[in-house]
């Protein structure tokens, strides 16, 4: 594929906003862990949400998965399966600990 045939890239502003959002989300993760007094389940749920937002930003804005949707689906499914299974397992453990 030549440069001329390459799909349209996000603008410089969109790129800057994406990276600012990634830095902000990572900083939020650190604040949730080190600076906020939260229940364990709430903390895990918040961290899982921030994680999904970060991975989504990278996949859709940096890797431009939408433009390669058919071939990108398998990659996204594998990432979602791995991270999702780990999240569910740990939340299930928190639930079990909280009810016993």
């Amino acid at each position: 594929m030549s440069d001329a045939a390459a799909p349209a890239r996000p603008s410089g502003l969109a790129l800057g906003v994406t990276f600012a959002a990634l830095v902000a989300l990572t900083s939020l993760e650190l604040i949730v862990v080190a600076g906020m007094d939260m229940e364990r389940a709430a903390r895990i749920t918040t961290l899982a949400g921030l994680l999904m937002a970060k991975v989504g930003l990278v996949l859709f804005f940096l890797m431009r998965a939408r433009e390669n949707w058919w071939s990108a689906r398998l990659t996204m499914a594998a990432i979602a399966l791995g991270a999702g299974a780990a999240v569910v397992l740990m939340l299930e453990t928190v639930y079990r600990v909280s009810v016993t």
Binding site: A78, I79, L81, G82, A85, A86, V87
Partner: peptide, 12 residues
């Protein structure tokens, strides 16, 4: 990604 998924599931 499937390799990473396997590692993360095993970790979980």
């Amino acid at each position: 990604a499937m390799g990473f998924a396997g590692v993360l599931i095993a970790y979980g």
